[in-house]
């Protein structure tokens, strides 16, 4: 693939916590490239560094060493302020959580349009985009319902709609199917694959769900902070 197709470029990234005897190396010289349209899974036992890597790619955690490029922008190079990283997250990264993490005081439609509101979209356009996404994910009929009244599958689809609202090119998912039954998990993964292709985005998901492994282009294994194979 051409280098212009690379959305996530992680080179020699290390992250450690503490110093001396208490030092913990969460990531050790990790290299990872993810291309447009790719759907990859981060696998590994607990404490292997999956979540740390997701946090570094998500601009939540600064690496101790190494270089991270997201959609051509080199982040954590000392020039980025916290507010710049926040803006980058808003514009380029979409998050899908294990527990859908919808805001309980907003309706499904508002949970999606809140991202666009924060991004500065006009309110009406934001609502239109939210309805469009909810219809696309087949939960449009639940647009005015609050999360407490949505089923697990509906809530997860609303969360996916929220993650896609601002047309991000990088979608990070933390156990996106953990709260779903097998059938629904397959549907959600098919949906994510289609979205990655349609929106020319990439998807990086942390998962333990073996039933959906076949839905990923690559399985990245982490152990003790290192990439084992890919």
């Amino acid at each position: 693939m051409a280098s212009g197709d690379i959305l996530v470029d992680v080179r020699g990234v290390a992250k450690h916590y503490g110093e001396g005897e208490t030092r913990v190396d969460a990531l050790r010289s990790v290299d990872l490239r993810v291309h447009v349209g790719e759907v990859i899974a981060l696998l590994g036992p607990s404490g292997s560094g999956k979540t740390t890597l997701l946090n570094v790619i998500g601009c939540i955690l600064a690496p101790t060493a190494g270089r991270v490029e997201l959609d051509g922008d080199a982040v954590f190079d000392g020039k980025w302020l916290r507010s710049d990283l926040r803006r980058l997250r808003l514009d380029k990264i979409g998050f899908i959580f294990q527990a859908h993490n919808l805001l309980p005081f907003l309706t499904a439609e508002e949970n999606v349009s809140v991202v666009l509101d924060l991004a500065g979209w006009p309110a009406e356009r934001g609502r239109e985009r939210a309805r469009e996404l909810l219809d696309y994910l087949e939960v449009g009929h639940r647009a005015k319902v609050k999360p407490a009244l949505l089923s697990g599958g509906e809530a997860q689809r609303v969360a996916i709609a929220r993650a896609l609202a601002n047309r991000p090119r990088i979608i990070l998912a933390d156990e996106p199917t953990a709260a779903l039954d097998s059938g629904r998990a397959q549907l959600v993964m098919d949906l994510l694959r289609k979205l990655a292709s349609d929106q020319k985005a990439c998807i990086i998901a942390v998962t333990h769900d073996e039933k959906i492994f076949d839905r990923f282009d690559r399985l990245i294994h982490l152990r003790d902070g290192r990439l084992v194979d890919s």
Partner: peptide, 16 residues
């Protein structure tokens, strides 16, 4: 706090 963490993660500025 959990909702605030979610808002921050999706890019809400401090002023929000």
């Amino acid at each position: 706090l959990k909702q605030i963490a979610t808002l921050k993660l999706i890019g809400a500025p401090d002023r929000t």
